[in-house]
Write a protein that binds this DNA or RNA. Sequence first.
DNA 1: AGTCCTACTTACCGATCGTTCAGTCAGGTT
DNA 2: AACCTGACTGAACGATCGGTAAGTAGGACT
Lengths: 207, 207
Amino acid sequence: MDEPDGAPAPARRGGNGRAGRVAYDLDAVLSVAVQAFNERGYDATSMGALAERLGTSKSAIYYHVSGKEELLRLALERALGKLERLLDEPDPAASALDRLERVLRGAVRVLVAELPFVTLLLRLRGNTEVEREALARRREFDHAVARLVEEAVADGALRSDVDARTATRLLFGMVNSLVEWYRPGGGLSADQLADAVVAMAFEGLRA
Amino acid sequence: MDEPDGAPAPARRGGNGRAGRVAYDLDAVLSVAVQAFNERGYDATSMGALAERLGTSKSAIYYHVSGKEELLRLALERALGKLERLLDEPDPAASALDRLERVLRGAVRVLVAELPFVTLLLRLRGNTEVEREALARRREFDHAVARLVEEAVADGALRSDVDARTATRLLFGMVNSLVEWYRPGGGLSADQLADAVVAMAFEGLRA
DNA sequence: AGTCCTACTTACCGATCGTTCAGTCAGGTT
DNA sequence: AACCTGACTGAACGATCGGTAAGTAGGACT
């Protein structure tokens, strides 16, 4: 673990950038940072440790971003943006249950595709303003899904003996827990995963 | 938030302790510490901030514990101990499914009863040796439950089209997510919660 | 009265934190 | 040749970190 092995190689600028030398771009810095934040925790990851992973100096990072917190902000924006877009095309003709299933499968897809970024999002504690704002946006997303569940219960499509809010939270608990164990390339595709989630959520595990 | 309002009042020693003055005991320090760790994160919680919450000085804490990490160790021990004891009385006569349901309900019960301690356990990143050891014990608990699921699938009691390992992880994801939202006294008892978990896990949400 | 113990307090330590700043150097432009 | 700019380096900043050393108030015990 002495060399920044897992890190993407510094992107030597082709024709895109104007000039310069070796050059990480912002995306490379961001993805290395997010990976480090997820492994050790945001607070426990120092800018020095980050620089070591990148193979540069601490201060080089400050050329690309204004500070540690901006790295967090950029990463959270990426995760939240993708999730929020899930709610944009609802297809009002479909039943609440169908729309719920669509959002559920979409959430699994985004989670898998943007695993490190969503992982970071789901571990926030709300210590700073940046974190609190992200948590508020996440809550808004949760509420939108909760409304879908309530609609589906009202339609008679979902059982009514389990409280809709509780059901929504258990549902999210199941989906969000993916970031703690799912790793792509482990013989389980995103679609298979979504199938398992939907099967367990709607039909249950009983044979 | 200037005064340690939420903190349990310092326990003035009655006849139990030998002598002394004002005196927090270890349990009071521990419970305040765990609450702080959960609110801000372990790494983001300084001993100074902890002392402020307790209404004492930093070094007073060092009279009760050897350091920050021992606070963590003691808290994790409490959570893990309770969880591990769940697996001790299996009643070999019962079916795997029945034993699984029992463990599931027991896990919800422990989680609710020891909410702050289990919360801390579930948020570990494995940065130090103490954390890694706790994570190993937690994994062992997970594996024991996974074996129950596999047994139940082999019995034909659980559906076999969803992989047993995946099912176990989704199950734990659902249960463990409780620490993120369940608050006692919110009109939902631990038993009702366990009912909801078991209903969704085994029968599914579909009406 | 004197001693001991408990439960602290005040003052401080070296290390590390995120951040800044002045300087450097390769290449592009003029 | 002179100058500019983008992308850094190395050293340092004040703040804060976890932890320690030394001293002490107050009750218990002899």
